[in-house]
Design a protein around this nucleic acid. Structure first.
Lengths: 225, 225
DNA sequence: TTCGTTTGATAGTAATACTATTATTTTGAA
DNA sequence: TTCAAAATAATAGTATTACTATCAAACGAA
């Protein structure tokens, strides 16, 4: 029995903490797979309940609705990424190295990590690529933001922007550049797979390596004085 | 009676051409306003039919479903933008000037243009900012793409990428940089208004001017040899 | 053993995303 | 001007969705 690291997520993200019970873990775990398979629009609690041998009503005790569940999953991902980046840059002093490590994680294809084994990171990453923007592109964004639902994303953005500020304190757009590249990191993978006219990363390439190269050069050139 | 320029859109975008009838024009026109007011998720053909004093069934004769209608509206926007950019760069020879003009249009806040008065461009631009990504972030993206529904966006991207290639033929990522910045142009406005931690553009600024400055400097620095 | 909590089973409702049918109005071509 | 075709309106209906409510069963700790 190996100790599992549990990410501490904002309690507004759920009605009951899904990490605290077997049913909750099945909800989170299987929702990732189901959304990955059929997409968020076709996904609903009825289908999920059948998949986990439970009922709609039981799922509703954990999450207000499917949109909240999606926000939870995406928040988990950003919190996980920030944990990894913070951990790996912890004892690095050169801010350029820290930024390189961060960009590496942002563009890296995830493999399943047994220390966090409740969640399949590799599948979750596919869900993030297709669905993450839908968490905030709503008329409800201001209320959701007030509740702290986007804390994970904002915190990651601020962390990386800080690396940029260390490299060039005069650069006026560290947060804008970071959010732009966080979004681009997913968009470019999606475009390479589905809308190749929108990218120079070709399907036959190692798309993750190319993406890293694109973002690395864009960021470091833009940061130059 | 002033001649109105009509944009020619891919006929896969609709069942009947909404530009060809009064009802069709009311559908397009009022759907923009309704989506702007209540958001795409809450928007439906029932509500729209009430607003235009028609019926659901009539609207279904123009568009297969609300997702297709959204794709139509967004395609109109990209086609309109490309028309403007192509027109304004037509007799310019310096590719840097052409690129500057293009970035200017991408980041410019639209005002209603009487030559295209069927559609309220200023309202449509708000819809684009909030809803455009939803057109392709679906499991159906490959089929929709095969039908040519994203031709407008791709064409605009290719046009701007060509300016970049003229400036620096060795730059390996003109399409990636263009799509990244097309997306960022809207994201940064949205973040400034709703998620300020993700941007350096502040609400009190002239957010459109700041956005222009951010993208202009990012693009030209990244293009440098 | 019992009390409280969690889950399951079942039922029900308003709204959504359509489809189908028929009636009425508009139109434009002979 | 007429008249047939096309477009629109009116109405109804269906399966699914996104919930809410109620009650019973199981389960676990004191």
């Amino acid at each position: 029995m190996v100790a599992q690291l549990q990410l501490q997520l904002n309690s507004s993200l759920y009605l009951r903490d899904p990490q605290s019970s077997d049913l909750g873990q099945r909800i989170v775990n299987q929702s990732i797979h189901l959304i990955d398979e059929i997409g968020f629009e076709a996904f609903n609690f009825k289908k999920l309940s059948i998949r986990i041998n439970s009922t709609e009503a039981s799922i509703y005790r954990y999450f207000e609705n499917k949109h909240r569940l999606l926000i939870y999953l995406i928040a988990w991902y950003w919190t996980y990424l920030e944990y990894k980046i913070t951990y790996e840059t912890h004892n690095i002093s050169d801010p350029r190295d820290k930024l390189r490590i961060a960009i590496g994680f942002i563009t890296h294809k995830l493999e399943d990590d047994d220390n966090f084994s409740i969640i399949s990171e590799s599948v979750l990453q596919r869900v993030v690529i297709l669905e993450s923007d839908k968490t905030y592109l709503t008329k409800n964004v201001d209320d959701d933001n007030k509740e702290g639902l986007f804390k994970g994303y904002k915190s990651l953005c601020i962390t990386i922007a800080r690396f940029m500020q260390e490299i060039n304190p005069d650069f006026p757009y560290p947060h804008s550049l970071t959010s732009t590249c966080l979004e681009a990191a997913h968009q470019q993978i999606f475009f390479a797979q589905h809308l190749p006219a929108l990218t120079d990363i070709k399907k036959d390439d190692d798309i993750y390596a190319k993406n890293l190269d694109f973002l690395m050069s864009t960021i470091f050139k833009t940061l130059e004085k």
